[in-house]
């Protein structure tokens, strides 16, 4: 019999800005102290086949690490008996023994949802929301039920808006469907292959839920990601609220497939560049990250359900004030 718990993972911004230039090797293998290893950048991978967004993974690690440290620091503050001469010897045993505090100390549980780390009251935006360009991008993951996407999207957007308080809506909501990319080197070939990717029926079935977010005022404009010219043309024919944006991640950004460039121009759709991995996070990686943080044990599995990335950029200054990720997942405990 399996017992499931809902998980919400979050990165925050500071962790993200520190961690997001770590080398992929470190991000995926080094269990801890990644931050103190110093930033070790490897050039942004343009490979559209890349799995696991390195920025997301490293900032999750960094976020967990920070939360644990913060807890450790608060323990120290609250332990007046700490000897003045001791450093590590004064640390509570819970930390020194396993090098990490108990999970319950830095996460929080509410209504059968485990927040990792716990979400403190958000700082919110420092200026009025209209001063920002607020973007959210939701990644629907493979092997998740299409009929749940509505609730995933609502949940994700609500977490984002909570973080970006007092904003009532995002300016752009981009939807990333699983399985789409521009895979071939040749620009024409990439566009042609793209036409066969994804699942048109599922994408169209999902869209009304996204349109609903727009109608209810939570997202001013909608966008899609990695749509080639054929897919986009088919999509545009059938949807009610058209996407205003198509995000593309091309190996060489200057090789926009001409049919796509043409279609976008004719249809008034803006082609924006993004650098996100196609498959933003895998089950294996998520389990490894949570295992390293001491959140899950051997008998537990973690299934990622959705990922949302959000960005708040001050419009007339081009400064990113806030950026981060939330990941929705399901923890399955095998009895």
């Amino acid at each position: 019999m399996a017992k499931t718990t809902k998980l919400i993972l979050s990165t925050g911004y500071t962790s993200l800005s520190v961690a997001h230039l770590q080398s992929p090797a470190q991000q995926l293998t080094s269990p801890r102290n990644i931050v103190s290893d110093g930033p070790s950048i490897v050039r942004r991978s343009c490979s559209p086949r890349a799995k696991n967004n390195p920025e997301l993974i490293s900032s999750l690690r960094s976020s967990f690490h920070s939360a644990q440290q913060e807890y450790a620091a608060s323990l120290l503050r609250d332990t007046p008996s700490a000897t003045p001469n001791g450093s590590s010897s004064s640390l509570p045993a819970a930390i020194t023994s396993s090098n990490r505090p108990p999970t319950s100390a830095w996460t929080s549980e509410q209504d059968n949802v485990l927040y990792i780390p716990r979400i403190d009251p958000p700082t919110g935006l420092s200026e009025p929301p209209q001063h920002y360009n607020l973007t959210a991008k939701i990644f629907f993951l493979p092997n998740t039920p299409v009929q749940s996407r509505m609730s995933y999207a609502r949940e994700a957007l609500s977490l984002v808006l909570q973080e970006l308080f007092p904003a009532q809506s995002v300016d752009l909501l981009v939807v990333s469907f699983p399985g789409l990319s521009f895979t071939a080197d040749c620009e024409w070939e990439a566009d042609r292959l793209n036409a066969l990717q994804g699942n048109d029926a599922e994408e169209l079935a999902t869209w009304p839920a996204v349109e609903e977010l727009h109608r209810s005022g939570l997202a001013r404009e909608l966008g899609v990601a990695e749509f080639g010219s054929e897919k986009l043309a088919r999509f545009l024919e059938k949807v009610t609220v058209r996407p205003k944006v198509n995000q593309v991640n091309l190996r060489n950004c200057c090789n926009v497939p001409p049919p796509l460039a043409k279609l976008a121009k004719e249809q008034g759709i803006e082609l924006l560049v993004h650098g996100d991995a196609t498959e933003v996070v895998t089950r294996e990686t998520l389990e490894e990250v949570l295992g390293d943080a001491g959140v899950i044990g051997e008998k537990e599995e973690v299934w990622p359900l959705w990922v949302v990335k959000y960005t708040a950029v001050v419009r007339d200054r081009g400064v990113i004030e806030n950026k981060g990720y939330f990941v929705g997942a399901e923890l399955v405990r095998r009895e």
């Binding site: 997001h20 230039l21 080398s23 290893d37 110093g38 930033p39 070790s40 950048i41 050039r43 942004r44 360009n133 973007t135 752009l172 944006v245 593309v248 091309l250 950004c253 200057c254 926009v256 460039a261 803006e270 082609l271 924006l272 560049v273 993004h274 650098g275 960005t311 950029v313 081009g318 990113i320 950026k323």
Partner: peptide
């Protein structure tokens, strides 16, 4: 030496985080 990220990769990372159209980015 330990790795230093480099200013251009930092700029690229910034550009990846904001909405830039294809022509501009090129």
């Amino acid at each position: 030496e330990e790795d230093f990220p480099g200013l251009i990769p930092l700029v690229e990372s910034y550009l990846d985080s904001v909405n830039v159209d294809v022509t501009t980015r090129c």
